[in-house]
Design a protein around this nucleic acid. Sequence first.
DNA 1: AAGCCTAGCAACCGCAGTCGG
DNA 2: ACCGACTGCGGTTGCTAGGCT
Length: 303
Amino acid sequence: MGRTPCCDSKALKKGPWTPDEDKLLVDYVQSNGSGNWRLLPKLAGLNRCGKSCRLRWTNYLRPDIKRGPFTPEEHKSILQLHAIVGNKWSMIAAQLPGRTDNEIKNYWNTNVKKQLRQGQAAGMGEQAALASLGGGATSCPAARHMAQWETARLEAEARLSLLSSTTSATTASVAASSSSSSTVAAGADHGAEAPPDIYLRLWNSEVGDSFRKSALSAAREAAAHGSDEGVVPVSAASSFPPPAGDDSSAASNVTAAAAVDEYQLFLDLAAEELDLFHGRHGGFPLFPAADMLGETSLYTAFD
DNA sequence: AAGCCTAGCAACCGCAGTCGG
DNA sequence: ACCGACTGCGGTTGCTAGGCT
């Protein structure tokens, strides 16, 4: 449905923020909170649109923002998470405390893509590089690692587009939106005849396990610090997978302890269902190299 | 020293989802 | 059920600093 533009009606300022503007915004948010971004500029005395204020706060002024270069651990996490969820920057950011989706997106679009290009240029064409699962033909380990993950994701996407033309829209959408817990569970219910998906395999792999563990620990951390904190470092309880109802405002009303319990329940349920799902269609050769090596762990095959 | 090029990043834009009247 | 307001998110743009010629 149509929306009225939020910024172009009046002569609102655009472009880089000045220190004075930053101070006004920080002072206002710290003393009044960020309840209504549309009203905030007027109340704070800023000649900016609310959207701009929200962006400035969430991407730059928030007190828990972590500055500086990405650590190797963060880099690895980004690669793994991107392989699982794709360009869901907010979801990836939720797993990296102090990092914003914008920062991760920029990091990916500059550093990581550059590494990928360099890896490809090191002796193989784009398709060949991406298709060399386990081949290890690139000279740059990081690029090779990333190309493997990217290949897995692209394979899944390609297969899904094939699936979508031959199966019902419901089944296809289930796999395509694998980042949603409800749809993953639905996949077990409705997609019993569909081939297993890479995302489901990833979910059952060490990567998925690591992902689940970090999300759960984040939820516990949130519980320890109280669920009403303005900024939850890792918003696992409201992002991936969502607890009962994908509504952050509603989620904030649920007690943190209950959120942890719900989350654990989801993880157990998902593990059961996906294991069953996987078992029905085991042997689908997504990773021939790993299979042929007799490697039980998808992730170790990549390393 | 000056001009050009490029990478990095902050900020903008527009779409989609959700909520409440 | 409909519609407008609002927020969140991902893609894109454009500015700037630093390196190179």
